[in-house]
């Protein structure tokens, strides 16, 4: 199985997609950080500060939650699976490993490593920029306070689980474009609506996006009312449940399909 997981990692790192994805992720993270830094402490129209100031201990956790690039690990997960069908490399993959369940398992294993790798890159980048900003802004940095460790672990777990989510989705849908569009629309539009508004969170908290928020315990007051999310461990369980469900369904379908 170690060999198969290594082969799956080679598949990703021998094409150019991974670093393009890493660059886009860091670019978007930078945009978010620029926004958070420039609007830190700026008063909202009604006179209340909309966002904590740079020297406010609440700012750093906010900046760190911006490191979450789950959309990118989801895309990588989708491509890791659907790319095999798009370029018909699935034929060679199943010839090398005819026990197809092992291929899906290896991809999930590789997804954990890829998700963790991207999370660490994003977290390190964000931490360096955000800590620098706080120090320049005259604040004190305590990386053990304000739920920062929990946030970091939350980002790591979320990005890993979204990679697995993408693999499961890709195995199920197989058509790369359809899986990508479906995944992105789901994550950006449907989920963000269902998990942002507390009134809809009764549904949203059971979806991957709501579960991810619960995992990181992001319950900043957005002015829309009190959040209705699962506890952090509940969020983790929901995400793992989705990944497993997709993997099992994918396994049941791909193992039975003819490759013609």
């Amino acid at each position: 199985m170690t060999n198969l997981i290594r082969a799956e990692l080679q598949k990703l790192f021998t094409t150019r997609l991974w670093w393009a994805m890493a660059l886009v992720m860091l670019a978007l993270t930078s945009l978010g950080l620029v926004f958070l830094i420039t609007t830190a402490g700026a008063p909202a129209p009604n006179g209340q500060p909309a966002l904590p100031a740079l020297d406010d201990p609440a700012w750093l956790p906010l900046a760190l939650s911006n490191a979450n690039g789950n959309i990118f690990t989801m895309i990588l997960g989708i491509v890791l699976m659907t790319g095999e069908y798009r370029y018909q490399t699935i034929t060679g993959t199943f010839l090398t490993t005819p026990k197809r369940g092992r291929v899906i398992a290896a991809k999930l294993g590789a997804g954990v490593i890829i998700g963790a790798f991207f999370a660490v890159v994003s977290l390190l980048f964000t931490a360096v920029v955000a800590v620098t900003a706080v120090l320049i802004g005259g604040g004190a940095v305590d990386l053990t306070a304000n739920r920062i460790p929990q946030l970091a672990v939350g980002v790591l777990a979320t990005m890993i689980l979204y990679a697995l989510f993408g693999i499961g989705l890709g195995a199920l849908v197989r058509n790369q474009v359809a899986a990508l569009i479906g995944g992105i629309v789901w994550a950006f539009v449907i989920e963000s609506v269902l998990s942002s508004f507390p009134a809809l969170q009764t549904v949203g908290k059971w979806l991957p996006g709501g579960a991810a928020q619960a995992l990181m315990s992001i319950d900043f007051d957005t002015g829309l009312g009190e959040s209705n999310l699962l506890p952090a461990w509940g969020g983790a369980l929901v995400l793992i449940g989705y990944a497993l469900l997709f993997a099992v369904v994918a396994n049941l379908t791909t193992t039975r399909r003819d490759i013609t």
Binding site: N3, L4, R6, A7, Q10, K11, T14, G92, T93, T96, T97
Partner: peptide, 9 residues
């Protein structure tokens, strides 16, 4: 070929 080689050990 390297990917096949790795997967097949």
């Amino acid at each position: 070929l390297r990917i096949m080689t790795t997967a097949a050990g």
